[in-house]
Amino acid sequence: MEIISRVPELRERLHNVSNIAFVPTMGNLHAGHISLMEQARQHGDCIVASIFVNPLQFGANEDLASYPRTLAEDCRKLYAAGVDVVFTPNEADLYPQPQTVIVQAPPIAGELCGAYRPGHFDGVATIVLKLFNLLQPQAALFGNKDFQQLFIIREMVRQLNVPVAIVAGETVREADGLAMSSRNGYLRPEQRVEAPRLFKALQQVVKTVRDGRRDFKAIETQTMQYLTMMGWIVDYIEVRSADTLAAAAANDRNLVVLGAARLGKTRLIDNIEFCVPQLN
């Protein structure tokens, strides 16, 4: 495995490589990331991972400075997963001058998580497009846990004619159902015990809808009230079309329920895709 930090060396290393599968990360890797690395082998001959904490996607009061950086341990995990190249740039490598050209994400970027993190998805889209241009991968893998991010990246690639296949990796969970996340390490012990409740609440939404209810707003409100009663600060619980991310209609069959809520200062997100039978 090669660890490369500078852009010229990366370009030289990949110059004659024709089948790259790319997994972009911000580091502090967990089993969910590693599952993407393993899946990447099905989509390319050269597996490239990046580790870069992207300042463009953090708001003024978010955790850019404190975001966990565990490069040595991350590289050990990537080596064990069979990654060929790890790109570890610093900010000056990717932003040698102020980034005044920003990718404007589609309007859905202002909803769901985007309503609480303004500009976040513009920053995500900008760094992903920069990395695509640098690496020229044939495929790129992203976790399904960040469903809205995955949707926006797919739209960017489709609308800007970027020749990269976007592959989704399934959400990897702890034994108690908590979706793996680099931010789970922020949870205090008692919060970690409580954290799986978000996934369980989403599971209950799925069951309720599959049982025949279509009053989505009422279901969302009831779920938010329940989590609030249990001590959570809820940003949203919403049922959306899995195909368009528009608000779910009564005749939609492919759905996703998405949630974001906080325990203390730790913000957790999760989602479940599901299908419902055709209404008569």
Rank of each mutant, 00 (worst) to 15 (best):
E238M: 14
R41H: 15
H30T: 01
L187V: 11
A260N: 05
G119T: 08
R158K: 13
Q39K: 15
I34R: 03
I152E: 08
T228G: 15
P118Q: 04
V172F: 09
D45G: 12
D63S: 02
P89A: 09
Q159F: 08
Y67S: 06
L94I: 15
P89L: 06
N184F: 11
E9C: 00
V128I: 14
N144F: 01
I47C: 08
Q104F: 01
N161E: 07
N254F: 13
D93K: 00
D74F: 13
N254G: 07
G44M: 06
A31K: 12
P8M: 09
L141C: 08
A247K: 12
M230W: 02
A65C: 00
Q39T: 08
A105E: 02
R192H: 11
L187R: 10
Q97T: 12
M224D: 00
S35Q: 12
I4N: 05
P98K: 07
N54T: 05
N161I: 06
V256Y: 11
N161G: 03
R267K: 13
R240F: 03
G27D: 04
A21S: 11
P106N: 04
A60I: 12
V257W: 08
R76M: 01
G143D: 10
L160F: 09
I237C: 08
E2L: 14
L227E: 12
E220H: 13
V48L: 15
E155F: 00
K145D: 04
D146E: 08
V128Y: 02
A249S: 14
F58W: 09
G264H: 05
A168P: 08
A247G: 11
A31V: 02
L227S: 07
N184H: 09
V83M: 07
I47E: 06
R192G: 02
L56A: 07
R213N: 14
N61F: 07
L135N: 05
K77H: 10
Q148I: 10
